[in-house]
């Protein structure tokens, strides 16, 4: 099965070649796109314009997207869900997570007990490769990679996120138009 129509050296083929039919066919396609850009609204199946006007129009990020990290909190008590188990730090191939626990005294069933809670959480987004292994390791669905994808900062230090940033979300400047 020949895939490319094999040119036969007939007189018609030679004439076609002299009058540059092969080039004109290609030019018809580009002209079609030029007209399509002005008239066609369908950019996926048709010939419309595919551009996303990014800062003006926010892109639709998939729900599973791995973006900026976040430490989720209990929606009722606003306590952190993190139990300082360190599994995320162990799962991280890049060693970019530091979980710093502290011991607190709690009264459980009338008896004082020591309990390990989260003190500080350091997440170095400059080294993170967003593989989401930490998210999968987290037993309490606390650490999550969100849909926020604008992670640029002005300094290297700005890439290192502490617990507050991870819980509240970073203040990002949203540029209009």
């Amino acid at each position: 099965m020949p895939l490319v129509p094999v040119p036969k050296s007939t007189f018609v083929q030679k004439l076609k070649r002299f009058f540059m039919v092969d080039l004109l066919k290609g030019m018809a396609v580009t002209l079609g796109f030029n007209i399509g850009a002005l008239t066609d609204k369908d950019s996926v199946a048709g010939k419309g314009i595919y551009t996303e006007q990014y800062p003006k129009v926010r892109p639709d990020v998939a729900p599973r997207f791995h973006g900026a990290p976040r430490l989720n909190m209990d929606p009722e008590t606003h306590d952190t869900l993190c139990i300082a188990c360190n599994l995320c730090a162990l799962a991280c191939p890049e060693d970019c997570i530091d979980v710093i626990p502290m011991d607190v005294e709690v009264i459980v069933a009338g008896k004082p007990r020591r309990k390990k809670v989260l003190d500080e959480f350091i997440f170095d987004t400059s080294r993170c490769m967003f593989c989401a292994l930490c998210q999968e390791a987290c037993p309490t669905y606390c650490l999550e990679l969100t849909q926020d994808f604008e992670l640029a900062t002005y300094s290297r230090a700005g890439f290192v996120w502490n617990r507050e940033m991870l819980e509240q979300g970073r203040e990002t400047v949203k540029y209009e138009s």
């Binding site: 580009t30 030029n34 399509g36 002005l38 314009i49």
Partner: peptide, 13 residues
């Protein structure tokens, strides 16, 4: 602009 239209883009905007 024309090249952008041929390439399904918008060009300078």
């Amino acid at each position: 602009k024309i090249s952008a239209f041929m390439q399904a883009r918008l060009g300078p905007m």
